[in-house]
């Protein structure tokens, strides 16, 4: 049930951007220093995220990236759905035809799992993660 590396790294890069003060942006190098990801890989990650306006880029030698919306309006679910091709745990939920679809208890269990996963990740925003990160920092200082 692994989240792909693409999904996890997208979360890391966007969480980094969520810490930026409003109206600021970060270069690929800055993002790479905190996430340990290369410029080329980050650019690849940002392609689908730009498509759904989760991230925006500024071109040019002094360019960089920033979030397309406030962190409170971007959920972990939005990010994972953009980064991963699909989040369904099994193919039979994506509409592949099966003659037993109406009586299949297994499919109901998979569906419940899929809904529970979605429910959880749609309820966690980047803003929530920033706050828990900061709470975690305080924990460690003590």
């Amino acid at each position: 049930m692994r989240i792909s590396t693409k999904g996890r790294y997208s979360l890391e890069a966007l969480l980094y951007l969520a810490f930026l003060p409003p109206n600021e942006y970060a270069s690929l190098r800055q993002i790479g220093e905190s996430t340990e990801l290369s410029d080329g890989y980050l650019e690849q990650l940002f392609i689908p995220l730009r498509g759904v306006d989760i991230v925006r880029g500024i071109r040019g030698p002094r360019g960089g990236y920033f979030l397309g919306k406030p962190p409170a309006e971007i959920s972990v679910g939005d990010i994972l759905r953009a980064a991963e091709s699909s989040l369904e745990p099994v193919e039979c939920l994506t509409g592949a035809p099966c003659p037993r679809v109406d009586s299949c208890q297994r499919r109901l269990a998979w569906k419940e799992l899929y809904l529970a996963i979605n429910n959880l990740i749609d309820g966690i925003t980047l803003e929530d993660l920033v706050q828990s990160c900061e709470a975690m920092d305080r924990e460690y200082v003590i």
């Binding site: 890391e12 905190s34 929530d128 993660l129 828990s132 975690m136």
Partner: peptide
Amino acid sequence: RLRMCLRRMV
């Protein structure tokens, strides 16, 4: 720090 936060919270 970012990974630790994601591990715990997600």
